[in-house]
Simulated assay, not measured.
Amino acid sequence: MATADAMALRAFQYWILRYRRTWRGTVVISIANPLLFLVAIGVGLGRLVGPDAAALGGVDYLAFFAPGILAAAAMQNGIIEAAFPVAVNRGPGGAYPVAAGTPLEPEDILHGHLLFMASRVVLSAAVFVAVMVAFGAARSPLVLLTLPAAALTAMAFALPSAAWAVTLTDIRPVNGIFKWVVMPLYLFSGTFFAVEQLPAVVRPIVYATPLWHGVDLCRSLSLGTVSWPLALVHIGYLTCLCGLGYLMARRLYRRHLHA
């Protein structure tokens, strides 16, 4: 009998085969859009922001903005790779009910899809980091660690998103997540400007958001200003969110995907 790992790999292979036919449609959203943000805002608008701005820590805007948009793009890609595909494929005619009718267990379906999600967000983040370095946006060799940091940020959103999406019988609620989650976090998690520029009463709310932890971790690594105790707080926060999301997803996949 095949092991659980082998069964999960079979599910992963399905997503890889499927992606070979659809990858062109994902490039714009997951890679091109963030890179256009980087060029238009970081390089273009950034020239209007003086490097001596105290709120930027004395670095130019491109160096400040690039790791922030890396983390924000990772969040967006994590949600895109989880919420939409899971919601679509758990319905009638989707891949999940078909897989549930095979020897695959709900956990195998979950694990295989999670492996695919992780591979997608890592690939997108790797391309972005390479462009950051090419544009001279990195200030430290520690920028290489922004790749696992961005991947962790992405999965901190992907796992809870998958857990929620597998409960849906209609994909329309997924559209609301971009209006009520993605855009507010993009704007108020330190991606475009320092959190210190926000009113003092708002800052504790920002510090509690997962994206701020991802942004601050990626930015401190890229700039070489990392405080390792604070970095461990960021990593611990995002890891706990991944763990909670996984436990929720595992339970809900069992409930909704029994053949």
Rank of each mutant, 00 (worst) to 15 (best):
M1N: 13
A4K: 14
A4S: 15
A6H: 15
L9P: 08
F12K: 06
W15I: 09
Y19E: 15
R20G: 15
T22Q: 06
T22L: 10
W23F: 09
W23L: 10
I29D: 08
I29G: 05
L38I: 06
A40T: 12
G42F: 00
G44D: 09
G44R: 01
L45H: 08
V49A: 01
V49S: 01
D52V: 07
A53Y: 12
A54C: 07
A55Y: 11
L62V: 08
A63M: 07
A63S: 14
I69C: 01
A73L: 01
Q76K: 15
G78T: 15
I80W: 14
E81P: 10
A83H: 12
P85Y: 06
P85I: 13
V86Y: 09
G91T: 10
Y96M: 11
V98Y: 07
V98D: 06
A99E: 12
A100H: 12
A100D: 13
G101V: 10
L104A: 12
E105D: 13
P106Y: 05
E107T: 15
D108E: 12
I109H: 01
H111M: 05
G112I: 08
F116G: 01
A118T: 03
L123S: 11
V129R: 00
V129S: 00
M132S: 02
V133D: 03
L144P: 00
L145Q: 02
P148S: 01
A158G: 08
P160L: 04
A163N: 03
R172T: 09
V174K: 00
G176A: 03
F178M: 10
W180Y: 15
M183Y: 05
M183V: 14
P184W: 13
F188P: 13
G190K: 00
V195P: 07
Q197F: 10
L198C: 14
A200N: 09
V202R: 02
P204M: 08
V206L: 09
T209M: 15
T209W: 13
L211E: 08
W212D: 06
H213N: 05
D216C: 01
R219N: 08
S220V: 07
S222K: 00
L223W: 05
L223E: 11
L223Q: 07
G224Y: 04
W228R: 05
A231I: 11
H234T: 05
H234D: 05
C240F: 09
L244S: 15
Y246L: 14
L247K: 14
R251Q: 11
L252W: 11
H256G: 14
H256I: 14
A259Q: 09
